[in-house]
Computed example of a mutant assay.
Amino acid sequence: MTRQVSWPVAAAVAAVLLGGGAVNAQPPSGFGSRPAYSPYLNLNRPGGSVTQNYYGLVRPEVQARQSVGSLQGSVAANQQAIGGLQAGITAPPELPVTGHQATFLNYRSYFLSGGVAGTGAGGTSFRTAAPASARR
């Protein structure tokens, strides 16, 4: 006795055997994607009131997800900029000059040091002691 196989079953078996691609059971997930469950389900959590659960559980989780999403956007922008620099694309022009002279260690506005020797225009010069030969 021979057994006959129907055409739809044979076609399905052939498609499975010849299909050969990778099949994922679940879509790829990350911290920035949609959560597996809503954080608002924590509102009815026992052991605290609704406001305690909202401000202690729900709101921090939502803010953390938002900050991670913005951080991922910044990382993507930085990677794009680095890729552009490596490819030889010119960087945007430098920022314009503000006209304000910045100095290092400039405390003249905080102390009464007007006219005292040793304070230069840059705020970085220091008063030195007189040489030993001049002290006699």
Score class of each variant (00 low, 15 high):
residue 26 Q to V: 09
residue 104 F to N: 08
residue 81 A to M: 07
residue 41 L to R: 14
residue 36 A to F: 05
residue 62 V to P: 01
residue 92 P to L: 13
residue 48 G to R: 02
residue 76 A to Q: 11
residue 53 N to F: 01
residue 132 A to P: 02
residue 18 L to S: 14
residue 111 F to D: 07
residue 98 T to C: 10
residue 17 L to V: 11
residue 47 G to N: 06
residue 9 V to T: 11
residue 69 G to P: 04
residue 2 T to N: 10
residue 91 A to Y: 00
residue 48 G to I: 01
residue 121 A to P: 01
residue 46 P to C: 03
residue 108 R to D: 15
residue 125 S to H: 00
residue 45 R to M: 11
residue 32 G to I: 15
residue 74 S to E: 09
residue 17 L to T: 11
residue 119 T to I: 14
residue 14 A to C: 03
residue 31 F to I: 07
residue 88 G to C: 09
residue 28 P to C: 02
residue 88 G to V: 07
residue 120 G to A: 02
residue 102 A to F: 08
residue 132 A to T: 07
residue 109 S to K: 08
residue 110 Y to T: 12
residue 28 P to G: 03
residue 79 Q to T: 00
residue 128 T to E: 06
residue 74 S to C: 09
residue 61 E to G: 05
residue 111 F to Q: 12
residue 26 Q to A: 06
residue 70 S to R: 07
residue 109 S to L: 08
residue 60 P to L: 02
residue 71 L to I: 08
residue 123 G to W: 02
residue 134 A to I: 12
residue 1 M to N: 09
residue 37 Y to K: 05
residue 40 Y to I: 00
residue 129 A to F: 08
residue 17 L to I: 12
residue 22 A to F: 11
residue 108 R to S: 15
residue 87 A to P: 00
residue 114 G to K: 11
residue 86 Q to Y: 06
residue 2 T to Q: 11
residue 117 A to W: 03
residue 81 A to Q: 13
residue 52 Q to K: 09
residue 40 Y to T: 09
residue 101 Q to I: 08
residue 44 N to M: 12
residue 38 S to Y: 08
residue 124 T to L: 05
residue 56 G to I: 04
residue 14 A to E: 02
residue 113 S to Y: 05
residue 28 P to S: 02
residue 115 G to P: 00
residue 36 A to G: 10
residue 20 G to F: 00
residue 59 R to Q: 14
residue 95 L to Q: 11
residue 71 L to A: 15
